[in-house]
């Protein structure tokens, strides 16, 4: 396959960026999208040009490190991570535009690499169950109905990639928070801190500069792990309970 690329190049956090055009003549449909970029980078290095910087680590769709906006869509045209997208999803002679995950709270560090540390701070604010090592009761002491355990798992599958934020016109991280409060809220272990958790996480969310949710739904469409949109309803429900309790 022949592929034309338009890639966002930006020298540093404060530099002005621009789209630069490249062309690859020998792309195999079995290549992953990031392997295609590896091939481009090898060619750039051979020519003495600095390679395109982009994040990736596991390349198995689970670590959440990769995340590119491909033709305007975070992680591209399929419901998967960028690293699990393959070139067979594109056609010969396609032109592909590649940009970083765009959102004010995610500043560009270089080229396609962004800073997503606000998501870590949201978890630090309350996305956990406070149990110090050694303090745990026997695992079978509290049965968890399978239905709740399954729903907890489905929402715990979030990989923290930030695609939901980049897809949202308001740059909200509500799907991310909704997934976490639903995961922990489905479990008996998560109940004692449930009401306070949501408030702390949302306060941090707002302090980081993320926007509000206006029920657009683009987040769930972009999510590579198919986190359901209704976690945001759960988030709102939990928030109402917390507000009633004056938290």
């Amino acid at each position: 396959m022949k592929i034309n690329l338009k890639i966002w190049r930006q020298a540093g956090p404060n530099a002005t960026g621009k789209l630069v055009t490249y062309r690859l003549d020998d792309v195999s449909p079995d290549m992953s999208f990031l392997e295609m970029l590896d091939v481009l980078n090898e060619q750039l290095i051979a020519k003495g040009e600095e390679p395109v910087e982009f994040d990736s680590d596991c390349r198995e769709g689970i670590c959440g490190m990769c995340g590119l906006v491909i033709n305007g869509e975070p992680h591209g045209p399929r419901v998967t991570t960028t690293c699990q997208l393959h070139m067979r999803s594109f056609k010969d002679c396609d032109t592909i535009t590649i940009e970083p995950l765009r959102a004010d709270p995610f500043p560009v560090l270089r080229d396609l690499v962004v800073d997503r540390s606000p998501l870590d701070r949201i978890i630090a604010a309350g996305g956990f169950i406070s149990v110090s090592t050694g303090a745990a009761p026997e695992a079978h002491a509290t049965p968890v109905p399978k239905k709740n355990a399954d729903r907890a798992f489905d929402t715990a599958a979030c990989i923290g990639c930030g695609a939901c934020v980049a897809a949202c016109p308001n740059a909200a991280a509500m799907l991310f928070i909704g997934a976490k409060v639903t995961h922990l809220g489905e479990l008996p272990q998560g109940q004692p801190e449930r009401a306070a958790r949501i408030v702390k996480m949302l306060n941090q969310h707002d302090a980081e500069g993320f926007g509000g949710c206006t029920n657009v739904g683009a987040c769930a469409d972009a999510c590579p792990k198919s986190i359901p949109f209704d976690v945001i309803s759960q988030l709102n429900k939990d928030l109402r309970t917390s507000l009633v309790r004056g938290l």
Binding site: F128, I129, V131, T133, G134, A135, A136, P137, E138, A139, T142, A149, D150, A152, F153, A156, H183, L184, E186, L187, Q189, G190
Partner: peptide, 9 residues
Amino acid sequence: DQCVAQGVP
């Protein structure tokens, strides 16, 4: 025990 208490599903 520890992981279940942390909410590992």
